[in-house]
Each structure stands twice: as structure tokens, then as C-alpha cells.
Design a binder for these strands. Structure first.
Length: 398
RNA sequence: CGGGGUGUGGUGUAACGGUAACAUGCCUGUUUUGGGAACAGGUGACUCCGGGUUCGAAUCCCGGCACCCCGACCA
């Protein structure tokens, strides 16, 4: 079993429903929400507008784009409607997006537009694997760009690419994540993937660490190398997980779905679109793969389910319990997220659980620490232990 | 989709064709209390489902389902 699934299940973050289908429990939901919040923030900064499309898909627009056919797209979840006809569960959302935009885009004055959503996607994968890294039902942030010209499109594309780098940096995987040249389909020579180096990955990439870029094995050949000004000798083969993918679509969807606008000359022109995806749950899995030790998970600050894991020892036997509860409330008042372990268990068991859950800062309150008028503060990552007063701790957390 | 493997208490495992066992968890009690405590008692499995072979099947055979691993696929 994949490390991320093993640890996340053991620590109570997720529950496996079936192969490639996972529920997110309270701890897991907090992490996922933190990841989503960072992505959402950056999308909004970009000027993109959030919306929420349907998961259930009308075959109609898909037939127009040619993607309803099982021979073209083999991972549809489709079902018959009792009222007659069919519906599918969306594995991506270009078709619906085009259809909606058609109602709002008439003129070149309406462009450009960036619109995104964070929603569950369904893909009937032939084989689910790697825990929550490759699943049949998963959360995805999908952004779509709509532009009136090549220049405008490229400007948007580059802007999003830059923001993606910021997002991965903020999520704590920046230095392991490389913009990667990959197959572009029929409308551009390349697409860009964001590949995070990680043993649990399914992709093979060739990395140039100095230039901070990589080439996916699937497109690596002499022509591509010449194109990108790279030499084979400068590249290192690595295994990676695709955490994001951005690609140019040209008029691949706008044309068949009739998404056009009137240009300044009054001529009807198809909109140029781009699509930009990030898988938040997949990132959660990658983080666990990258940030863990024999004892458990070690969350980066930015996504940790709580900032502080407050452990009260001697529950029911000493007054440290009351002190812990009081300090718990103080932390909450200061806006510091905290998980209180007030279970009546032995110290070792609570410490072991704490290490497994992986909250960055562990704070222990017991009779021992109270005698000194202090609390014990341990850093999950470094293992460093300090004795601080409550005030000192509050100061260090701000 | 091709190949390989596995289904047994909540969890992890054991059992030659012959009484389903062990650990853990859970419940009760006593003692214990800063790195997964000790003792005692208790709870808990139609051995994945359906057929077949047999005096007798968790075990062998056939079919199905589920899960895991390798590969292919991943627009």
C-alpha cells in the first residue's frame, strides 16, 4: 500500500471507501481545505472568477466536441436517466464552460475572462493506485482562460504559469516542483506540467536542476532538446507526480461549441481558450510522501490541520487538565488553531499519536511543566524541545 | 485491458481435508501514570458470495465479487 494512504488512514485523515475512492475525515478535510484556500486565494489574485459547474453532464455539448464517444474518451462514468436519455459524471469541464461562456461573450470587449472552479471530478480509471494520488473521484481546481488574440492568450498563459509556481511554493513543494514540457496535443507543441519529484510518482521526467525545468519522457527526443536548447547530458532522470497541468487549447473547444465573439471589424471569431488544472487532494498525498518519517507525518505549516497539538498529561489525576483547557481557550482566542488531546491515556500513547498526526508544534502540559510555570514545546520536524512560559509560546507563534 | 497475488472477529495474522487459534482493539475491575503499562475477567468470525467434490471444506474444484502488486492506459 502507498505510504500516503497508509499514514493518512492510520492517522485518521481519510477513509477508504473502495479502490480509488476516499472520504476525507475531520483532520483530512482541514488539510484539504487549507490547500484549497491557498489555491483559491491565488486564483482570485489572478483576477479569475470562481463558479461551480455541474458534476452531472448533459451529453449534448460533449457530442459536439466529439468527446462523448467511449472510443474517444474511455474513462467516463455514464448512466441512463429514468426519464430517458443519458448523463455522465464530468471528468473535466471544457464543454460546460464553453456553453456558459457562449451566453456571456459576444464582443471582443467581453474578453479576456478567467473563470475557475474547485470541484469533484470523476474518472473511471482502469487502475487506481498510489493512495490519494490517483483516484477515481477527486477534487480538482480547473481554471479556463478565454482570449481574443494569440498575444492575449499567451499573456494569460504565462501569468497563470507564474502563479502556479507561487502556489506550489506556498504549499511547501516549490523546490521539488519543476515546470515540465509535455505533449501538447493538437493545438500547441507543448503543454506544461508541474512535476513534483517523488518516488511514488508515475511519471518519468528529465530534470535540469540549474535551469529549473524538466522534460517529460513521453516527449523527449532530439528535436525537442534542440527546441528547448537543452543537452541530454545535462538532464537527470527522475520519478515525479504531476501536480498541475496547463495547456493551450486554441479553438479546439470554442469552434465545435460555437463560442465566438465579434472583433473590431465586426467579424465573428472563435475564442482562444486555455485550461489549467491542479489536484488539491493529490498534492495532499504528495506532501505526505515527501514530508514524513518512521513515526508519521510532518506537515508543512501552510497546510497543517492545526498549528498546535496541545497534550494534557495526567488527565483526571492532576490540575494540569484544567490548565490545559484554559490554555486551549487562550490559543483559540488568539486565533491559533489547536487540537487538544485530553484523553485519559498514558503519555507514550499520546506522544506516538501526536507524532503520527504530524502537527508542527506539540505542546505538553503536565504537573511537571506546571511546577516550573512553563509548557514543553516540541518541534515535530526538528525534534527540538524548549520549555517556555505560555506568554513566550504565544509570542513565538505570532 | 494483459500478467501475478490475496480474501478468516473492528484491525493485523495463524490453522495437514478433521473442535477456527493468536495478537491487538473494545468492555469490567484493581494497580499504574512523561515515549505505545501490569494482572484478572469479559466481548467479539455462518472463514467474501454462490455452486460442487467429500462421512467431513477456511483448506480441494468451478463461477462470481472485492482488494493489492507489475505492466499498458491516463485526451
Amino acid at each position: 500500500m502507498a505510504k500516503n494512504a497508509k499514514l493518512l488512514i492510520r492517522a485518521g485523515y481519510i477513509h477508504k471507501e473502495m479502490a480509488g475512492v476516499y472520504s476525507f475525515l475531520p483532520l483530512g478535510l482541514r488539510v484539504l481545505s487549507n490547500i484549497v484556500a491557498i489555491i483559491r486565494e491565488e486564483m482570485n489574485t489572478l483576477g479569475a472568477q470562481e463558479l461551480h459547474l455541474t458534476a452531472l453532464q448533459d451529453p449534448e455539448p460533449w457530442k459536439k466536441s466529439g468527446r462523448w464517444d467511449d472510443k474517444v474518451v474511455d474513462n467516463w462514468f455514464k448512466t441512463k436517466l429514468r426519464a430517458g436519455g443519458e448523463a455522465g459524471l464530468g471528468f473535466t469541464h471544457e464543454e460546460v464552460m464553453m456553453r456558459i461562456m457562449q451566453e456571456y461573450v459576444q464582443s471582443y470587449r467581453d474578453l479576456p475572462i478567467l473563470a475557475y472552479q474547485i470541484q469533484t471530478k470523476f474518472r473511471n480509471e482502469e487502475r487506481a493506485k498510489s493512495g490519494i494520488i490517483r483516484t477515481r473521484e477527486f477534487l480538482m481546481k480547473d481554471l479556463y482562460s478565454f482570449a481574443k488574440s494569440e498575444q492575449e492568450h499567451h499573456a494569460l498563459y504565462e501569468k497563470v504559469k507564474g502563479v502556479y509556481a507561487v502556489i506550489f511554493e506556498r504549499l511547501g513543494i516549490g523546490k521539488h516542483t519543476y515546470p515540465t514540457f509535455a505533449s501538447g496535443g493538437s493545438f500547441s507543441k507543448y503543454s506544461h506540467e508541474f512535476q513534483t519529484l517523488c518516488e511514488a510518482g508515475e511519471d518519468t521526467v528529465y530534470v535540469n536542476e540549474e535551469k529549473r525545468l524538466a522534460v517529460n519522457k513521453e516527449v523527449l527526443n532530439n528535436e525537442v532538446l534542440a527546441d528547448l536548447g537543452l543537452k541530454k547530458e545535462e538532464l537527470v532522470e527522475r520519478t515525479a507526480v504531476e501536480v498541475g497541468n496547463i495547456f493551450e487549447q486554441g479553438t479546439r473547444f470554442s469552434e465545435p461549441l460555437g463560442l465566438t465573439f465579434k472583433d473590431e471589424a465586426g467579424k465573428s471569431v472563435p475564442v482562444l481558450t486555455g485550461a489549467y488544472g491542479i489536484g488539491p487532494a493529490r498534492i495532499m498525498g504528495v506532501l505526505v510522501e515527501l514530508c514524513s518519517d518512521e513515526k508519521g507525518i510532518i506537515w508543512p505549516q501552510a497546510v497543517a490541520p492545526f498549528k498546535v497539538h496541545l497534550i494534557s498529561l495526567g488527565v483526571g489525576r492532576s490540575n494540569s487538565e484544567r490548565s490545559a483547557e484554559a490554555f486551549y481557550k487562550t490559543l483559540l482566542q488568539k486565533g491559533i488553531s489547536v487540537l487538544l488531546d485530553d484523553r485519559d491515556l498514558r503519555a507514550g500513547e499520546k506522544f506516538a499519536d501526536s507524532d503520527l498526526i504530524g502537527i508542527p508544534t506539540r505542546v505538553v502540559m503536565s504537573e511537571k511543566t506546571l511546577e516550573q510555570g512553563k509548557v514543553e514545546v516540541k518541534d515535530r520536524k526538528t525534534g527540538e524541545v524548549r520549555m517556555l512560559t505560555e506568554a513566550e509560546l504565544l509570542g513565538s507563534l505570532n
